[in-house]
Amino acid sequence: MPNATGDVQKKLPFAVKDCALITIATGIKVQNLKEFAAVLKDVPTGSIYHHFWGRLLRALFDEPEYNNDFASWASRGLHDKQLAEQLSMVIPTDYKDLEGLRQETVEVVEQRLDESEIVPWAQADQQFHFLKSQIVVFDTGIRYDHPAELVPQISKLSTGSIYYHFIDARNRTDERYDDFSSWLNGFDGDEFEELTRNLCGMDPYFSSLKEIRLNVSNIFQKFFAKGEQ
């Protein structure tokens, strides 16, 4: 089973990584919803991923009203609040892969086009630029031998580490496990089964990285506190 520390690392220490995203322009920009729908069908899946998940690692100066870039553009660029709400309800974790996510997003957009008498359009300075990103992974040098060691440390992990081990891992692995769960599964027996189940049950999409970090930390703390009782 693939995990943060590689296939051969069952029972080996958990290697804490950090990451950053390098933004790359696809060179594709659109000004109205019809163009948007056409491009959305063909744009690389990396672009779909970037616009749904990449914002988690971006420096944001305010609390975003919508949780993906497409919804934000529908609101800010097209001034179409209804579409923004509908796009905001497309939850990437509901789909088994990015193609499924793309198809659902296209469905929402095309349905809105069917309902519209006039194609919603944006002003020239509000075009949507399709971007993609490349992840750069850093090794922090930090290793943990036993899950209990993580309990006091998770809250100190950087948001880049949380992104890499919790968000990127779920898109990186066929099983869609976060790296903590993959590592825990490598231990013999079912000692950490409940902990793994709780981690896998977390939907990170509506949370900031700081909130995900807090939730993961709480799950670890509760599990090991119960073990001590």
Binding site: I22, I24, A25, G27, R58
Partner: peptide, 9 residues
């Protein structure tokens, strides 16, 4: 060719 952005947007 590939176009990178210096500010992480």
């Amino acid at each position: 060719h590939t176009i990178y952005n210096s500010f992480q947007h």
